[in-house]
Design a protein around this nucleic acid. Structure first.
Lengths: 343, 343
DNA sequence: CTGAAAGCGCTAACAT
DNA sequence: ATGTTAGCGCTTTCAG
């Protein structure tokens, strides 16, 4: 009753081929192929016959067979880290939108923030002979990226790398951190805490640099004890804020390395009976879709991730020789909302 | 400087084939194939030679060529509606995890809540000859699902459908709505508003039925004017709550058809200076990852989406003739947190 | 245990 | 404008 179904079914046994269509339509396979691909002119009568046959047989060309012949798979590989993250899934949506209508399908693999998994995932894509590759902030070493670019065009985000067949896009994270902190400084805050991102990740470090930059510019010396370790998660954001609160060190504002940790930090504040922004001002980073629905809505630095995805897709399409209009990726932008106030 | 790269590169020109390996190793292609697939015993000397050649040439078997021969693509199609939704992306993660190690890659297409797009997306998957299909709450008609199941095994969620080669899984949404509302009723609330999901979608209607069930059981007559239209988005949740507030109708609690609308509703309440849960109690539905970080954390009905994804993947693997341990999907469960209080 | 040979479904010269 | 033919890279009988 509940046992596995017939294995044979897995191979789609009753598959109808281009040859069947040709036979039914009374033409040669080449003619069918030509109609399918618009490769050459075909007489109206034959065209009609073929189209009828295709409809009657419910024929779908086998992309694999075509690929074998042409060497083109109409597939682009996407290496992401966490498909379930609000951040990356928006980028994926951008990629999906950018590929839309081009006939290319994305095949998405996750590296789970682990260099080895990244490499293994890339291997899978390699076996599938993807025509192009989009790497969303991989953990992988530069040399592996370069090696990949030798096999097919690559677009990589959040890294600067120059090579033939490789295009990279990097947002100015440092400026983002600067914008966030400058905003706080301008509001009169001088004791500004910082919940960092994952230790050792470039984006986390750059945002912290921006935090330092803004202080330097304002002539304010930041207190190193106000910098606590986060890891870009809400749970750790909560813990970090608790740590800050328990330390007894005074502060009036917090710059969180991303929105997710800001969400956690905000909850910790709530649990301690502290009001946002009356008691503490809060700034995040990313502008996740839900951040504008926090209570109050989160002041944050908007990262145009969707546009980055779109850009990556169109750029890759171009590199693969297809027309695609260029995408302008806007710069990072401070979104002032309800979690910050003048001191 | 910035023009498209050489088109030829798209086809991965310098591709090394099994034949190359055979040549270098000094054996026949058949032997290489046998080693690759473990199809038959091979002498240790030849095995070594082949493995060395594979490493030396950095050979990756072309899955397409293999598929053409075997009819097996090692690919499963996933039809989702919104890749960027917190809800579905968790299911996708479950699918990814469930497929992990099986050698199958998911290829994800989106229907964007549109039946026609669903069909078009299914066509793409069909062309790619996926070995199996997972449909996450498609908009597609039952007959299309049945048709798909004739070509390859299908697992579909949130629908009950019986056919060979088809397995479906449906959570008890109605009971979920009942649990949420009963909780509110038990706390002494009698004027309970409801922000609905998308009109006409089964899950939305069933949750509403559950809302009605609980009232009936408690002997409380719900006020129809307290039922306002939402569409599962935060923006509409906000609008619906505003509408409720402006109507002047008294209420002490709200059951939102999903967490996302609860988030919007919560912001509307905040904007009106109303406290949660002191002035209004709030219950959501889904238990999104971020819901436990709302301020206060959201009381909601947990949907085990990740497990559903896992279940779908394993069930499909089984149907395709591979071993995979069965997954138990837990029932919907009320998570009592901070947004509800005794009246 | 290993090799030779046929062919999966399609496309692309090359003919006509 | 249309048909014939030779593979793409791999697996798989069938021999040996």
């Amino acid at each position: 009753m509940t046992t596995g179904t017939d294995h044979a079914s897995a191979s789609g046994q009753d598959t109808v081929t281009l040859l069947d269509v040709a036979r039914v339509a009374g033409v040669s396979p080449a003619t069918v192929s030509r109609i399918l691909n618009g490769t050459a002119k075909v007489g109206d009568d034959k065209r009609k016959a073929v189209e009828d046959a295709i409809a009657a047989l419910n024929f779908r060309p086998n992309l694999f067979a075509r690929s074998l012949k042409t060497g083109i798979t109409m597939t682009v590989g996407v290496l992401t880290q966490a498909i379930e993250s609000q951040f990356y899934s928006r980028a994926l949506k951008g990629i999906e939108a950018g590929l839309q209508g081009s006939g290319h399908s994305p095949i998405i693999v996750s590296g789970h923030w682990d260099a080895e998994t990244d490499v293994a995932s890339l291997r899978i894509l390699s076996s599938r002979r993807v025509d192009g590759l989009i790497i969303l902030t991989g953990c992988i070493g530069d040399s592996d990226v370069l090696a990949a670019a030798r096999k097919q065009p690559v677009v990589i985000t959040e890294r600067v790398l120059n090579a033939p067949n490789l295009r990279s896009i990097k947002l100015d994270q440092r400026r983002g951190g600067y914008l966030a902190t400058r905003h706080l400084l301008a509001l009169g805050h001088t004791r500004i805490a910082h919940i960092t991102g994952v230790q050792g990740r470039a984006d986390a470090q750059e945002r912290y640099q921006g935090y330092l930059d803004a202080h330097r510019e304002a002539g304010v010396t930041p207190d190193p004890e106000l910098v606590v370790a986060g890891d870009f998660t809400d749970a750790q954001g909560l813990a970090a804020m608790q740590q800050l609160l328990h330390s007894g060190k005074p502060f009036t504002a917090v710059f969180c390395a991303n929105d997710e940790s800001a969400l956690g930090a905000r909850l910790a504040l709530y649990q301690h009976g502290l009001q946002v922004p009356q008691d503490v001002s809060l700034v995040g980073f990313d502008d996740l879709p839900t951040s504008s629905f926090m209570t109050p809505p989160l002041t944050t630095v908007r990262q145009p991730v969707y546009e980055v995805g779109l850009y990556a897709a169109h750029t890759l399409l171009n590199m693969m020789g297809y027309p695609a209009e260029p995408v302008r990726v806007p710069a990072l932008e401070l979104m002032v909302r309800g979690t910050t106030r003048q001191l």
